[in-house]
C-alpha cells in the first residue's frame, strides 16, 4: 500500500520506511512537521498515513492536530497514530471512528502485529493499543457506567476496542466464544446500548460511551 510517514525523528522515520518497504509497501511521502504533513497527504493521497503524535513546531500534540484536520477534510482517510506514551486529549474524537488506529511506538517492533493493525485500519476498522484503551476505559466518577463493569468485562471491552472479533477475543483470553458473547451482552446491557447486528457499530457505540 502507499504510505505517508509523518515523523520528526530521522532515525525512527528511516527505520520504519525500511521495514515497511521490505514488507512490500511503498513510502510515497514523508514529513517532519505537522503543517508539512498535511500538505504532503493532500498531495499524494496515500492509502495510509502513519503520524507521530508529538511533532514540530510545538513538540506537543501537533501530529494529532494534523490528523484531526486531515480527517475533517476527508472523513474516511485511514490514519494510524504513533506515540511514545499515552496522550488522549486530541485524538479522543477520532478513537472509535472507522479507519483509525493509535499505537505506542514500540509496537512496530512486533512487525507482524503492526502490519495486521495497518491492514485493519486501511480496511476501515480500528487498531487501538491496549494501554490506550485502558486509559480510555478508566472510570472517572462513581456514576460512570464503565464503573459498573466487572474486571473481566473491561478486559473484553478493551479487546473489542482493539478491533478484535469475538472469536479472536475468546482465543486471546482462553475462553469459550459463547462466554465472550455473554460478556458482550452484559456489557451492552450495563452500558445501556441496544444490541445491533454490526460488530463494528457496537465497537463505535462502546467507544462513544467511553468518551463521555
Amino acid at each position: 500500500m502507499r504510505i505517508v510517514i509523518g515523523e520528526d525523528s530521522a532515525l525512527f522515520r528511516e527505520g520504519l520506511s525500511r521495514l515497511l518497504t521490505e514488507n512490500g509497501h511503498e513510502i510515497v511521502g514523508t514529513a517532519v512537521a505537522a503543517d508539512e504533513l498535511v500538505e504532503v497527504v493532500r498531495d499524494v493521497d496515500p492509502d495510509l498515513s502513519i503520524i507521530d503524535v508529538r511533532m514540530p513546531p510545538t513538540m506537543t500534540d501537533d501530529g494529532a492536530r494534523a490528523a484531526v484536520i486531515l480527517r475533517a477534510e476527508s472523513p474516511a482517510r485511514p490514519i494510524l497514530m504513533l506515540s511514545q506514551h499515552i496522550e488522549t486529549r486530541q485524538v479522543v474524537g477520532l478513537v472509535g471512528t472507522g479507519g483509525f488506529g493509535y499505537l505506542l511506538k514500540d509496537r512496530v517492533l512486533r512487525v507482524g502485529d503492526f502490519l495486521d493493525a495497518m491492514r485493519r485500519v486501511v480496511d476501515g476498522g480500528s487498531a487501538l493499543d491496549p494501554a490506550i484503551v485502558a486509559a480510555l476505559v478508566t472510570p472517572t466518577r462513581i456514576d460512570d457506567p464503565v464503573a459498573a463493569l466487572s474486571a473481566r468485562e473491561r478486559e473484553v471491552l478493551a479487546l473489542v476496542a482493539e478491533g478484535r472479533s469475538n472469536s479472536a477475543i475468546a482465543a486471546h483470553l482462553v475462553l469459550a466464544e459463547r462466554t465472550v458473547e455473554s460478556h458482550m451482552r452484559s456489557i451492552f446491557q450495563k452500558l445501556r446500548i441496544d444490541e445491533a447486528p454490526d460488530t463494528h457499530r457496537r465497537v463505535l457505540a462502546v467507544l462513544t460511551q467511553l468518551r463521555q
Binding site: 525523528s9 532515525l11 525512527f12 528511516e14 527505520g15 520504519l16 525500511r18 521495514l19 511514545q84 511506538k105 514500540d106 512496530v108 517492533l109
Partner: peptide, 11 residues
C-alpha cells in the same frame, strides 16, 4: 533514548 532504541530495534 526511546526513539533511538526503537529505531535500532527496527533495523
Amino acid at each position: 533514548a526511546q526513539q533511538r532504541l526503537i529505531a535500532i530495534g527496527m533495523r
